[in-house]
């Protein structure tokens, strides 16, 4: 069963901007799916259309088999949206915001109260239920939006940069929560600028750039395509001359720090053995960048080549 099916979706704004140039996308039920792209790539427009905040120019979108235009209400019932920016009434209480949203989805009062309590407890906000929302911290406001999106038990949860601007502790607790929600059977579509987040949470991925899908595959197979790893080495002794290794590219960052690009077939064992032979002692090693980040940059930066194709 497809949770989301998008076919030849186009969006041209009134000012002539062509935000989506005919995208096709499918997300399986139960998936944890990453939709990535640089700023202005068309992610927010795509999410806006799926969640009925932006009108369609042409093409079709269906959610769990319900067409977004012909079967609008059933399609909408399946979706919960956590938008990028805070958009609830800042003068309402936390409980009021979540309870009202349940009402908009037609949830009977008794059930709405139960679901509100459940969602606020899950988001660790139950103690704050009577707080006026404008008095909450940024992280709490984001959690209110997640609770609000989940109160009608949606089958598809769309999270548009849910962890933007929150500290690492809250971000990690939100990751845990998202994984739990996904494990309970909810399909999740995540957009984020933290590629580490997408790499660790998502099973499938699409990258959108300039209104087109430039990559759509399984996360593991996408990462497997990466044939060069970039590392930062911390050395025990300062180096005067940068070592030369056949097949590897080495750059000196400072006296005791090197950037090394290692092809997969070269391998780390060989790297360390050759460095040891040169009497270079390595204290520690870390990835220069997240693997997905590398691929993302490769895909997005190869725009001119792609456009020529």
């Amino acid at each position: 069963m497809k949770a989301l099916s998008i076919s030849n979706l186009r969006k041209t704004y009134k000012n002539g901007l062509e935000a989506l140039k005919g995208i096709d996308l499918e997300v399986e039920a139960g998936d944890f799916f990453a939709l990535l792209g640089p700023n202005g790539a068309g992610k927010s427009t795509a999410i806006g259309i799926i969640s009925s905040l932006v009108t369609i120019t042409s093409g079709s979108v269906s959610v769990f088999g319900h067409d977004l235009v012909k079967d609008r209400e059933k399609a909408k019932s399946c979706i919960g949206l956590v938008p990028q920016e805070v958009n609830f009434n800042q003068f309402d209480t936390v409980q009021g915001i979540v309870l009202n949203q349940a009402g908009y989805y037609g949830t009977p009062r008794k059930l709405a109260l139960q679901r509100t309590e459940q969602c606020l407890k899950q988001m660790d906000l139950w103690d704050r239920r009577n707080t006026i929302s404008r008095r909450l911290s940024g992280g709490m406001k984001r959690r209110v939006m997640i609770a609000r999106a989940m109160v009608h038990a949606p089958k598809l949860l769309i999270l548009d940069e849910p962890t933007a601007g929150v500290d690492i502790e809250i971000r990690r607790s939100m990751w845990k929560m998202m994984q739990e929600v996904n494990e309970q059977g909810t399909t999740i579509i995540l957009t984020t600028h933290y590629l580490e987040e997408a790499e660790s949470l998502c099973r499938n991925i699409a990258i959108i750039d300039q209104g087109k899908i430039v990559e759509n595959s399984n996360m593991a197979s996408l990462l497997a395509r990466l044939n060069v790893d970039h590392f930062v080495l911390d050395l025990a002794e300062p180096l005067i001359v940068v070592p030369v290794l056949d097949g590897c590219h080495i750059e000196r960052v400072s006296d005791k720090v090197l950037n090394v690009s290692v092809p997969k077939e070269f391998g780390l064992n060989r790297l360390f053995s050759q460095l040891t032979d040169m009497n270079i002692k390595v204290l520690s090693l870390k990835n220069k960048s997240n693997r997905l980040e590398q691929l993302f940059m490769d895909l997005v930066e190869s725009k001119p080549a792609r456009d020529k194709r």
């Binding site: 969640s51 009925s52 905040l53 609008r72 209400e73 059933k74 909408k76 019932s77 979706i79 949206l81 938008p83 920016e85 958009n87 609830f88 009434n89 800042q90 009202n100 949203q101 908009y104 989805y105 037609g106 609000r148």
Partner: peptide, 17 residues
């Protein structure tokens, strides 16, 4: 105000005719 604060989106995403 609902438009200005963007909480009109709460209604637009929901299946409210």
């Amino acid at each position: 105000s609902t438009k200005f604060q963007r909480n009109i989106e709460e209604l637009l995403v929901a299946p409210v005719p």
